[in-house]
Design a protein around this nucleic acid. Structure first.
Length: 218
DNA sequence: TGCCAGGCCGGGT
DNA sequence: ACCCGGCATGGC
């Protein structure tokens, strides 16, 4: 029986060799990461990019300005990300939290304890574990591993976890068997997404040419 | 054309 | 505690 840590490192190595460095998160500021994390919920990144670009052109990439827009205006601005009514509310919930507790400055969150901050962020309506962990890891450089639907699918299909695994359980695997290194976590999650997009879509159960082929033939 | 994309909430069992 | 429908645009 080979150790889980070896398998996890092997996966990373294969992905890194195949895809190269991903340099995530694709954003110019921690605040932009937060917006992107919310907008990207169950939505393709290409659609989110348009929204972010849109906000930049309107010079609205600012918590005060965004928060003070009407729901209608905000929803209209983020339309290309889908679920725009829902996400307008979710964005405002986050912005309100940011303005009231941190004067709208992401940097003021950085000093807080990881577990405390995670609990607080999860209380914001519309932010679930993936969104919160993305913010923690990619905007605040906290050592926490982000799980998404690709991670589930990849791990399940390679018999690395049961199908009914919960978010926290899968996350715990990474936390237990890998060093809590921020850059490593950032790159690893990004690589899993790259793999998911290319080789692990819902409709294509067989990963032909997938860099994780023969993973268990060690 | 239908299915999918870097989820999450709320109401019903 | 789970299960499921709803939310919505844009690309293939």
């Amino acid at each position: 029986m080979i150790g889980k840590d070896k398998i996890l490192r092997d996966i990373f190595e294969r992905l890194y060799n195949y895809f190269g460095p991903q340099g995530w998160w694709p954003a110019e500021s921690p605040f932009e990461v937060c917006l992107g994390a919310i907008l990207a919920q169950n939505t393709s990144w290409e659609n989110v990019k348009k929204t972010i670009q849109n906000l930049k052109e309107e010079k609205l990439l600012d918590p005060y300005l965004l928060y003070n827009l009407s729901y209608e205006r905000l929803a209209n601005l983020i339309k290309s990300s889908g679920y725009y009514n829902l996400k307008a509310k979710r964005l405002k919930n986050f912005l309100k939290f940011l303005l009231e507790n941190y004067a709208g400055e992401i940097e003021r969150m950085r000093g807080e304890d990881l577990e405390t901050l995670r609990r607080k962020l999860l209380e914001i309506k519309g932010l679930g574990p993936e969104t919160v962990d993305s913010i923690l890891l990619y905007a605040l450089d906290k050592p926490i591993f982000v799980i998404d639907s690709y991670t589930y699918r990849i791990f399940y299909r390679h018999n690395l976890c049961p199908e009914e695994t919960t978010y926290e359980e899968l996350q715990e695997i990474f936390h237990t068997f890998l060093p809590k290194d921020v850059s490593f976590f950032k790159e690893y999650h990004a690589l899993l997404v790259a793999l998911g997009k290319k080789f692990c879509k819902k409709k294509e159960p067989l990963c032909k040419g997938c860099p994780l082929e023969n993973l268990n033939d060690l």
